[in-house]
Every structure is written in C-alpha cells, then in structure tokens.
Design a binder for these strands. Structure first.
Lengths: 178, 178
DNA sequence: CCTTGCCATGCAATTAGTTGCATGGTTAGG
DNA sequence: CCTAACCATGCAACTAATTGCATGGCAAGG
C-alpha cells in the first residue's frame, strides 16, 4: 500500500513525469520501495483521480506529450496520515535463504554467495559515495536532511549485513580455496 | 516463484499436512519466506498435480480428513535444479524507510523506531536461542547442519542490522529524552 | 452448556505486482 | 540511412499475495 506514499515522498522532493518517477524507482527511492513502471503509471492515475497529485500535460511540437505531476495539499495530508501510522515488519521472501536452509549444491551456493557479495558491495559503494557527497558532516544535519540521511544509513547497514552474511557463508563452505 | 521450493525444503525436513506447513510458515521457514495459508494450500495442490509431492489422505473417525504430503523424487530433482540456479537480490518494500525518507512526524517516527527495535530484539532472541540449542559448537557442524545454520546466521545478522538502524535513528531523533 | 481456540481444508473477491509489447516521438553512432 | 537507445505513456494478460469467511470437526475453560 505504500507505493502511493513512496511516490508522494518523491514528488515532495521534486515534481516529475511518470517517466522521471520510473527512473527514480530504478535507484534512489527505488532502493526502499521497488515498483514497476506500470505500477507507477497506474498509481499516478489513481492518485490524480483521488486528488493527491495534480498532473499538467504539456503538448510539445515534435515530441510526445508529457504530464508533470506535483503533490497537492490533499497529498500532503495523506502523507501526514501515513507518517503517523506505525509500520510493520516487511515480509521477507528470500530464494537464497531457502536455498541455504535446504543446502544441496555447495558449489552453486558458493558461487551464489560470491555474486551476492559483489552485488551488496556495489550497492554499498553507491550508498557510501552518496553519504559522503550529501552528508559529509552527520553531526550537523539540517531538519530536512535527517530523514533521508537515516533512510540511507538503513541501506548502508543492510548492505553491510549482507556482506557479513556472505563472508560467513564463504568461510564455512569455501574451505578448499582459502 | 520460490514458495514451491520453500515448501519442498520444509517437506524434506519432515512430511506434513497443509495445516502443519501453515504453522511452520508462521515461524521457522516462514522467517525466510512469508506465505499465507491459502498460498500454501493452493501451491500444494499444484505441486501434487506436478508430481513434486505426494499427498496421502487419512479419513479419521470423529475428526476431519487430513492429507499428509511428502516430497517425491521429482520434487527432489526440482530442488536440485533450484539449488543450481543463481538467486537475485530480493526486492525491498519498506514502509518505514519511505516514512524516514520523507520524515514529517518525528514523534511518530521515534515511537515506530522503538516498536521496531523491540520487534527485532524479540526475533533476535528467538534466533539466538535456536542457535544455542541447535548449534552449540559452530566449528563442529555436520554436513546437514551447515545450510540451516548459515540460514539462521543470516537471520541473526539481519536482526542485528535492524537494531543498529533503530539505535541510530533514536540517537538522531530522540535527543530530548536521552 | 457455551465460547473460544485449535485442527483441517478451501472459496472468493480482491489487491499487488510483472512483463512484454505497443505506440509515437528524438538522438546518436556506425 | 539504419539501428539502438532514450523519452513518454499505457494496454493486456498474466501471476503473486491477501483476507476473511465457510465448512466441519475436537478440546479446554468458564
């Protein structure tokens, strides 16, 4: 249900077209809420009907039409309501954990752990570069920076945990090559 | 798609009824793959049709019928195929991270962080008790223990990361009460 | 005895999410 | 010029997941 809110948060940061949002959901806000371009377009349409966002269509000569969406005061009110609502733990669905739980092919698990470790490291590198660029002094954050900074910190801690997990797995399974 | 495999892994550990599996998905294997009872029943039916599991229905006097499912050799082959397949990163969808990213209600966020911290701690306590009971000596694991142990370790690292995140959040937002 | 919870299975109506394809445009590189 | 990629939106057909309710049984506690 929070796709709406993820979109509203992103539009609060900056108005955008559906295409812009789809790009943002490939990175940035998409690190915390994964959504397909179809969900985004469908949800934008619904939120415009609900009055939470307002779309302005621009007809361009020689280029396709584009609609820019901005959050409305009703949208801000909905975000306020969402902010006051307690969240619950996200359901986990992990192929990798299931595979480990029923470990059958040690070599494949080692290869998978290595690939996942690399993926976690790449994501962590991205997060840490962003942290360094946007929040060089975490003790001196502005009011508006605290939320995004703490969200980013969550991502960093998650990626580090993923790396630590892969290292433990490789430490246990990958004995012959150490 | 891995619900099938989560069920097959669980049936490899022990044959079970649909009801048993639903209970296991409330804990144990459900920590790594969340599924509703309806998904479980529906998926069992499909897997029986596919020959991956075999159900034996027991008619009981004075009690309702029950079907016990066991994995078949075709099911084991499918698990083998799954084990050889690389996994991909699980999509994340976090209300809490979205809420932080667009932080509006600091007090509500503090309350939420406290509640989530308690939830992570409870889950961690469960995992660590299980670790202590089932794997008192991680340096001396049997072949069959390594996978489940490493899956459990993943859960432990994840919960610790969640606690660390909540502590950072509270350290930044909850100043007036420290 | 009645209520609630547990054992056991499954329907139904719904929401959430995916994937590719379609359409119609521009730009850049070979 | 042609191909591939980007900009932009949306259809369609589908799978995944949820939630409660329904049905029919037993057990335990008030």
């Amino acid at each position: 249900m929070a796709l709406e809110h993820a979109i509203l948060v992103s539009l609060t940061e900056q108005s955008a077209t559906g295409y812009d949002l789809a790009r943002r959901f490939d990175a940035s806000i998409g690190y915390f809420w994964r959504a397909s371009h179809q969900q985004i377009y469908r949800t934008l349409t619904r939120m415009a009907a609900d009055g939470w966002v307002e779309g302005t269509t621009e007809h361009r000569d020689g280029a396709t039409d584009r609609t820019t969406y901005a959050i409305t005061s009703a949208g801000r009110a909905e975000l306020g309501r969402f902010s006051a609502t307690p969240s619950s733990r996200e359901p986990l669905r992990s192929d990798f954990a299931v595979k480990l739980r029923g470990l059958l092919d040690t070599e494949a698990a080692i290869a998978d752990a290595k690939a996942r470790r690399a993926d976690h490291q790449a994501r962590l590198d991205t997060y840490e570069a962003s942290e360094k660029r946007h929040y060089p002094d975490p003790a001196a954050l502005t009011e508006d920076e605290r939320g995004p900074y703490l969200a980013l910190r969550g991502g960093i801690l998650l990626e580090r945990a993923g790396i630590a997990w892969c290292d433990e797995i490789l430490g246990h399974l990958d004995r012959s090559e150490r």
